[in-house]
């Protein structure tokens, strides 16, 4: 079905979700909250890709293929990120990102 909605609605939505995720990445202390915020930013990117696929190249499906790749890489990222987080928390005993400052002197 052809939709009555304009593409800008979906761009507003994904921009707002991206901004909320970016706020979480910048301002959260907990390492797992930051990982989850990155996932929200990637979900916003997916909304944009699928919306552009629907409105501008509906029969090419390239936006959906790219969204599948983004979902794959996001799953890899959360798996590796959680493993790193668990390793760090075991070694340091804290979840606060500001405590992981070994490279500073």
């Amino acid at each position: 079905m052809a939709t009555s909605l304009s593409p800008s609605y979906f761009i507003f939505l994904s921009a707002a979700l991206f901004a909320i995720g970016a706020y979480g990445v910048i301002a959260k202390k907990n390492i797992i909250a930051v990982l989850v915020s990155i996932e929200m930013m990637l979900a916003a990117v997916n909304i944009n890709l699928v919306a552009f696929n629907k409105f501008f190249t509906p029969e090419a499906f390239i936006g959906q293929v790219f969204a599948i790749f983004v979902i794959t890489v996001a799953a890899v990222e959360i798996g590796l990120g959680l493993a790193l987080a668990i390793a760090l928390i075991r070694k340091r005993g804290t979840t606060n990102l500001d405590d992981f400052d070994w490279l500073k002197w």
Partner: peptide, 25 residues
């Protein structure tokens, strides 16, 4: 799940990002 001290300038930055994207769209 508390915020650190950077939330003061995080709010204008992400609001600016949203405004740029929304106005462009």
């Amino acid at each position: 799940n508390t915020a650190n001290s950077r939330f003061i300038f995080a709010i204008p930055v992400v609001f600016g990002v949203f405004l740029v994207a929304a106005i462009t769209a």
